[in-house]
Design a protein around this nucleic acid. Structure first.
Lengths: 133, 133
DNA sequence: CGGAATCCACTTTGATACTG
DNA sequence: CAGTATCAAAGTGGATTCCG
């Protein structure tokens, strides 16, 4: 990469370089990671600000400790959420979206809302398909 | 549901009724289905119009026959794509997004592009996280 | 060409128990 | 409270084979 390339150009170049259609492209793995029910629900739950671990667990009904923790760690590692530990007794841990996380939140929230909004029409499509076959 | 409710009201009601945060809500399963790498890539591949099975397989590098067929069947059953068979020798099968499919396409394409655009910054976040731990 | 069907390795996930 | 560790169960996905 040329040293004379500014950051806007670098972003543009990055956009050109990565292609999720390619099996070995890193963005394929990233797409796989963010195309995830729990990731979507965790980010959606953090819409209105930070939440504690137990609050997240309550809001995302049916999530196991393991999956919640794993999702939170991955999101933290990728820089999408921040984790703040308050050393009290008992300890308090808060999670909050970063700016980068919010940019993904804007997309996955649409996904969640799309599922909720189109559930009825999809049920009817399934009924029709199943009765034809 | 009241018989005096018009379709717009029904849609509004549907939006209110379904909540993917609830473990047993059907929209939770739908969210799980559409939060899928292959679903995203298939819809993205159909951006410019219909494609044959083999063309899809070529564009979505690394997808197995099984996963491609499974994804196409699910998308067809949910009414997101249409499947057209031309009875020639050999047979020709074309897939094309429906209007409903295009509404989801608008979202999953953002997801794919987000992954491609933010790969670099996420790699640096991972490096930083891993070096701290 | 466009699948369907089978087998099986691997991964993912959930329950359970335990801990700082 | 907020996890970690472990194990078993379930699901996913790939390779292979066969078919209209």
């Amino acid at each position: 990469m040329s040293p004379t390339m500014n950051s806007a150009q670098q972003r543009q170049r990055a956009k050109d370089d990565y292609d999720a259609f390619l099996a070995t492209c890193p963005s394929r793995q990233l797409l796989d990671r963010i195309s995830d029910k729990w990731i979507t629900l965790v980010l959606s739950a953090l819409e209105d600000g930070s939440l504690r671990y137990s609050e997240l667990a309550r809001q995302i009904a049916g999530v196991s400790q393991k999956m919640l923790t794993q999702s939170l760690r991955n999101l933290e590692r990728d820089g999408l959420i921040s984790r703040t530990v308050t050393a009290s007794v008992p300890v308090r841990v808060d999670y909050e979206m970063t700016e980068l996380g919010q940019s993904l939140f804007g997309i996955v929230l649409q996904l969640k809302q799309w599922a909720e909004s189109n559930m009825n029409v999809i049920i009817s499509h399934r009924d029709e398909f199943d009765s034809r076959n």
